[in-house]
């Protein structure tokens, strides 16, 4: 039992002393997941709103596909990206396997269904009425999209935070396409997983604490906004 307590003490020491290795890992985690979330959001929030509002044939099938892919396991996403990016794969010439770029690609693909599905749902349930109001007050379709984004900005932000939370806490995809290389592609989750298999707990605990703080921060943000109605 001693090693647990010892692990905590060592973990706190690492954090308080701003251990460069620990902080490099944290910064890479934040960088990869933030970039992936922003990329996915910029492209797929407008698409989600558009699909949610638009009436078209096969909308039910599209909804089903989006909702189903929201729960694709991260290892599957990692596997697919690895197959595409490996030297023998169709995109092997890019030579980005086992780099942060590959990790960003994998996490972007991972959160796209999530951000698309959440936005789609939001637009479908709450956007239609806003679109109608914009129309009855003399607005065109661009006016109504602007109005929807402005009216639902808090909910959209909550969706973005939810997607980021999924990205930063996943381990499967970044482990596979990043390779957990020290100083290059090592992020919080892959380090924790590795440290555990090495039986070396202090750094795992230190990073675990940071990950908890990040998730806790995001979720309390989401909670406080979803309460404010």
């Amino acid at each position: 039992m001693d090693y647990i307590f010892q692990g905590f003490i060592e973990a706190l020491k690492l954090l308080i002393s701003f251990d460069p290795e620990v902080f490099k890992i944290i910064i890479l985690s934040l960088f990869v997941s933030t970039t992936a979330t922003i990329l996915a959001s910029l492209i797929f929030i407008p698409i989600g709103i558009y699909l949610g509002l638009k009436k078209f044939r096969g909308k039910r099938i599209i909804s089903r596909i989006i909702y189903t892919s929201m729960s694709v396991p991260s290892v599957i996403v990692g596997l697919v990206v690895a197959i595409l990016l490996s030297r023998r794969g169709p995109l092997g010439h890019l030579d980005i396997m086992y780099t942060p770029k590959a990790m960003i690609i994998a996490q972007t693909l991972l959160v796209i269904p999530l951000i698309l599905g959440l936005t789609y749902n939001l637009a479908k349930n709450r956007g239609t009425i806003i679109e109608k109001v914009a129309f009855t007050l003399g607005g065109n379709s661009i006016d109504s999209i602007i109005l929807i984004i402005r009216e639902l900005k808090v909910d959209i932000l909550v969706n973005v935070a939810t997607s980021f939370s999924r990205a930063i806490s996943e381990v499967g995809a970044v482990m596979i396409v990043g390779g957990n290389i020290k100083g290059h592609t090592r992020v919080i989750t892959t380090t924790i997983s590795m440290m555990n298999s090495m039986g070396d707990y202090p750094m795992a605990i230190a990073l675990g604490i940071i990950l908890l703080i990040i998730s806790f921060g995001i979720n309390s943000f989401i909670y406080s906004y979803s309460q404010e109605d």
Binding site: I129, T136, G138
Partner: peptide
């Protein structure tokens, strides 16, 4: 048409007001 649309309006039974 567009001109007619901008010259009429509709107040719903449960109006949606902006936040």
């Amino acid at each position: 048409n567009k001109e007619i649309a901008t010259n009429m309006t509709y107040v719903f039974q449960k109006p949606y007001l902006f936040r």
